[in-house]
Structure formats: C-alpha cells, structure tokens
Nucleic acid binder design. Structure first.
Length: 271
DNA sequence: AACTCATGCGAAT
DNA sequence: TTCGCCTGAGTTT
C-alpha cells in the first residue's frame, strides 16, 4: 500500500503502459474534469515518483500530480474498459510507444489529483527530502537535518521534507532492524548509524518495489507465529502491539506520536 | 452483511 | 486541531 515503494512501482508501470504515446484522460467522477481536459489527447513523456508523489509528464509541459493519501488506489485492465465502478477520479487509456496493447487505469480516492505547471513541480520537489528510491538522492541532505534536530528519529523519518517516501511501516521496521529506539533524538544519531539506516531503507524499499509489498522480516525470524492470519503482512513490530517480539519475546509496545501509531520493542530498541 | 481501522496529507476550522 | 477523502483488508455479527 501507499508508501514510497508503491508509487515507484506505479510510475514504472505507467511508464511501460503509456509513455511515448497519446493518452486519453477523463474524470468519470467529475472532480478532475477540468484537469483531465487540459491533458486529454497529449503524449505522456514520462512517469516518475518522488517519495509518495506520482508525476505524469506530458509533451505540452503540463504535469499531472497524484498523491494517493491513505486509501487512494489505481486499478488497471486491458481495453476496452468497463463502465467506471465507484468514484473514479481519473481514467487514463493509452497504448504507449509500441502502440500495441491498449490499457486503461482508474484512480480512486486520492488525496491529490491535479494539473501542475513546471514551476509548481519544482516547488513540490523542493520541499521533499532525499528519496531512497531515486538515483539522484543525497542522503547527506537528510543527515544534516537529522543531526541538527531535537525531534525524535521516529518523527524525523515520517517528515517528508527530511526523507521522502518512508511511511509508518518502513519507519517502524527499519528502526527495529537497527535496534534503535524511536525516541532517540536526531542529534544523538551518529553519521555511521544514519549511513546504515539509509542503506537499509534503500535495500528494503527496492525489494518493496520489486515485490509490490513491504517485505522486511528475515526468514529465520519468521517461524512459529501462530497468531498471524494468513494474509497479514509479516512485520517485526508494525501493528503487533501486545504480541511477542520475534527476537526476544518482549511484548511489542505501542504509542501515538504526532497522530500516528508507533510500534517498537522496548528490549531490542532500548532508549 | 456490517463494522472497524488504516501504510497520508491537505483543507477547513 | 479536526475533518475529508470514500477504498480495501481484516474482523465481528
């Protein structure tokens, strides 16, 4: 679901499906009708992700900006598409460069779906920290912010202007994997610790893009967890409050920090 | 079938 | 600080 890996996966998919060809864009729901009209019939030149933001670049210079928020979602199917089901904010249909197979995708429930001009895109990307999934990311930019801050590392990792693309699951899981207390102040984190956290985020989120799911638990830690329902994602601590830590058996702790659920193992991640 | 909660963020108050 | 988004997975009835 929508942390950075989801958006990068969607960007790749849309690049494959639609880039290099004319795209028909509409808004069956109507809330994006004006924006859709601006780009309908233009050629999609590039689809890319910046953190949790998805950008569709058109040859006209206009850019469609999508943010899925908590429950926005894309579905896709080969054309011809059936009539829209539910509240479809944006529907795209195109065949890309090869112009062979016509595909369509429907967007529902996004927080943002809007047309931006070049300068507005610059404003957007300028307020985002380095994204572990982008080649142009500079982790030192994040290090500067973190090592000068009194805020907790848990809060800093969720701040998109510090690191772009990390959400609540990757935050909880990467801190666990490094035995780091979520309460640790940014300024108490050493250069080496940040380097290791960043490297792990890059590796984990790349796996996330490839697999289309957040996969963070090492196989040797994934035995004997009878309390788990079949479909529940495997995590060390995320959404496991009250259950035993996979490493030490201590009850996983939970708190609400800045309005978001926070999970950690008090033993493996001591203050 | 109905209900609850959520991996996020911007707008409204 | 609270609300809206109005989907989807998991849980309860």
């Amino acid at each position: 679901m929508p942390e950075g890996h989801t958006l990068h996966r969607l960007a790749k998919l849309h690049q494959q499906r639609f880039a290099g060809g004319v795209v028909r864009v509409s808004s069956p729901q109507g809330r994006f009708a004006d924006g859709a009209a601006l780009v309908d019939g233009a050629t999609l030149t590039k689809a890319e992700a910046w953190g949790k933001h998805l950008l569709h670049h058109y040859d006209s210079g206009l850019v469609v900006h999508v943010h899925l928020g908590l429950y926005g979602t894309f579905t896709e199917s080969p054309a011809p598409l059936s009539d829209p089901v539910g509240q479809v904010r944006m529907r795209m249909i195109g065949a890309g460069k090869s112009a062979t197979t016509l595909y369509g995708t429907d967007l529902r429930g996004p927080t943002a779906c809007e047309v931006l001009h070049g300068p507005e895109v610059d404003v957007l990307t300028a307020r985002l920290g380095p994204d572990p999934l982008r080649r142009d990311a500079d982790p030192d930019r994040a290090a500067q912010r973190i090592r000068r801050s009194n805020r907790s590392i848990a809060a800093l990792l969720m701040d998109q202007s510090v690191v772009a693309g990390v959400g609540n699951v990757y935050r909880a899981e990467v801190l666990f994997r490094h035995g780091m207390s979520p309460q640790r102040p940014g300024r108490a984190i050493t250069a080496g610790e940040w380097e290791a956290l960043w490297a792990d985020l890059v590796a984990l989120m790349k796996v996330g893009v490839r697999r289309g799911a957040i996969v963070v638990v090492r196989p040797e830690h994934d035995r004997g967890a009878p309390s788990y329902a079949a479909g529940k994602p495997r995590t060390y601590v995320y959404r496991r409050a009250g259950e035993p830590c996979r490493i030490c058996g201590t009850t996983v702790a939970h708190a609400v920090l800045e309005g978001r659920n926070l999970f950690w193992c008090p033993t493996c991640q001591p203050d």
